[in-house]
Design a protein around this nucleic acid. Sequence first.
DNA 1: CCTCTCTGCTTGCAGTTGCAAGCAGAGAGG
DNA 2: CCTCTCTGCTTGCAACTGCAAGCAGAGAGG
Lengths: 149, 149
Amino acid sequence: MALPKVGSIGEYIREQRKQAKISLRQLAEAAGVSNPYLSQIERGLRKPSAEILNQIAKGLRISAQALYVQAGLIEDREPPSDVITAITADTFITERQRQVLIDIYESFRKENRAGEDETSQNTQPRRDSSAEDELPETAAIVTTESREG
Amino acid sequence: MALPKVGSIGEYIREQRKQAKISLRQLAEAAGVSNPYLSQIERGLRKPSAEILNQIAKGLRISAQALYVQAGLIEDREPPSDVITAITADTFITERQRQVLIDIYESFRKENRAGEDETSQNTQPRRDSSAEDELPETAAIVTTESREG
DNA sequence: CCTCTCTGCTTGCAGTTGCAAGCAGAGAGG
DNA sequence: CCTCTCTGCTTGCAACTGCAAGCAGAGAGG
């Protein structure tokens, strides 16, 4: 772990804690680490072990993975969409059906990407509700494609 | 990190080293850790940090992730083989879209189950070709459901 | 016999990790 | 004013981590 990373894991933790609106002591207790130590970690004075990071993640209710990434323990691997992988590997449906499912899935993601671009200009992203509004149109498009295909 | 896990990380490392047919000193050098320390790790006398595990993984030419899993730092994320599980866990699409995909997937499987019952009476299962014949009907049914839903 | 090289391990130690005890400041309530 | 509770931080210290120096055994070659 390079020193720059350690500095940023502390900042990251403090940032997450502030977002969660809890005090240092509250997080320390929730995480099961001492509050002075947590303070030192946040200020970059100490380099916590993976186990401590795990505990802090639990206290913050975020994934330990996220903290490991910030701490430089692992690389940030954007998982290739598990859905596509799963569909591709699935043996219970035919190749044609797999392709249909993948097309639908990608169509959904494309719509959500477009939806996110639009909502990013609003005050708050309204992800679920905007997707619900768009869903009927999406299904119609997919249906048309299936018939032509 | 529970103690049992530490014990097994050492055994795992020794095992991998034996498979690679290199001596403890050779691995230590390749990994950039001291050989006495590596010896202690292999025998479970010391609990190495994630950074040391990273170095050892490099020396062994295996993924650090594998060692982290053995050490209990992260969970072994088997890529979900189940399409439903993958869809459920996907954060790129909305809950509603997830449900739609799951419904389609289950519909496909249901049709394939019926198709398999018919083809099982034949000499050889002709899964792909029979599925292609059935696909137009399947798509029509799905389309109807989507519009009604 | 010897020396040399390799093997894995022992041991002492410096630096690091994580904690307990406690400090100082801010705010609330009597 | 006081006490109390909360806040984040300081500090001393025990235990741990990782290393350097070195040991002992095995095998090879002269």
